[in-house]
Design a protein around this nucleic acid. Structure first.
Lengths: 221, 221
DNA sequence: ATTGACTTTACGGTTTCCCGTAAGATATTT
DNA sequence: AAATATCTTACGGGAAACCGTAAAGTCAAT
């Protein structure tokens, strides 16, 4: 049974809707915070006082408004919260739709539910909480479609480093220097050239410009 | 005085928050729709029945879910609504933050208010409606900062065409063909080279890759 | 029509990128 | 340890991009 819920959401309007949904479900012990750091400290305190939260509903992205935060976003919050309280249920409520991000949420973080901010998100939220109450996971069915896409390439950290350098204006012939500095191997120019060629071939791209916008769109960089 | 409000917002959760805010302000005649087409037909009917809306609160982006819509988004909705009912007040409620988009909203569409979906958006929504009730515009103060940014370049349609071609994988030396096909002049390679160099110089960029991601981020392409 | 200011194109040299092949290094298998 | 496979680097030729200069074209004003 889910009695005590914590909402971590920086958008006040979204937070209000979540609170209303919890009310509709008869859940009266709902706390809400606008920063990840506050969320973690509440989880810690509740856990220490032998009255832990049953469910964390969290957004993924928290806007920086000047207040220094040690936890930058939802993913890090989930990791930190689970370390304090491993059995804590987690429901992510976010507009995020990028395959790579969702994949890590489902696989490495094993979230119990995911509701995307979209047309029927309030009804979905209600449904998701109901499912989680019964110890089931609530993951959108079209997720698998999103993850699988034609000619997909698994980007390594090195790939991301290289493409990020390109996107930041570094000339290809200078990339070896930067890779070396970051202790990324192999770092020689010809290996960089080969790798870029491979990526572009599998994705059926012809130019670097195309590749960087793709990575932007996909949230890879 | 504002009595009758229409909410055009595809996110159910956001719509609920807006409705709650209106309740808090004592505005009881609030209709809400999830599609732009529905919004326009409601505005038309209300206007014809001599009981028009006082305020339209609308999102900018409406997700395509298969239902065919003639009005794709908020900007087009605003234009169509103003044509039917020129004195209609418009308050935009969106996560949008790109300078170019906001500029057209404020300047060419003359919206009465803009609230960005962010940390204190519910309070801001309340404030904005109060301001509009008193015939004042409510525009965020940091807007001017956003629009004005160092080394800014005014992108022409031709610039956008060129950069879009680059981003879609067209080789620079083939751009002249495509420009010619689109009847964009000048179209010769050397003029394209010169233009790209100018843009990159003013923005202090060194590579095309950098330029295309910038334009992606800014919503220029 | 001529001048002058400005825009567009032509052209050539240099740099960077692209891409194949071959040599060298590293890891794996037997 | 030798053989094999795989990965990394070296190198070189050709293509594309970069960049300056000069020529050709365009336009406005007198």
């Amino acid at each position: 049974m889910i009695d005590k819920v914590l909402i971590a959401e920086d958008h006040e309007s979204a937070s209000i809707s979540i609170q209303k949904t919890l009310e509709d479900l008869g859940i009266n012990q709902a706390d809400y915070v606008y920063y990840c750091d506050d969320a973690l400290s509440k989880i810690r305190t509740a856990s220490q006082q032998q009255h832990p939260y049953d469910l964390l509903i969290t957004d993924l992205y928290f806007e920086d408004d000047g207040r220094v935060q040690s936890i930058p976003g939802g993913i890090e919050l989930i990791a930190a919260a689970r370390q304090l309280q491993p059995e804590l249920k987690v429901l992510v409520f976010s507009a995020e739709n990028k395959p790579t991000v969702l994949e890590t949420l489902f696989d490495t973080h094993q979230v119990d539910g995911y509701v995307r901010k979209a047309r029927n998100d309030a009804k979905e939220l209600n449904l998701a909480i109901t499912e989680i109450t019964q110890n089931r996971r609530y993951l959108p069915r079209h997720t698998s479609q999103l993850i699988k896409q034609k000619n997909s390439h698994a980007f390594t950290d090195r790939d991301i480093a290289i493409i990020s350098l390109l996107a930041s204006g570094i000339s290809q012939k200078n990339i070896p220097d930067h890779l070396k500095q970051q202790n990324i191997v192999p770092f020689k120019l010809s290996s960089v050239e080969k790798r870029l060629k491979l990526i572009k071939t599998t994705l059926e791209f012809s130019k670097n410009e195309q590749l960087v916008v793709f990575c932007k769109d996909m949230g890879i960089i």
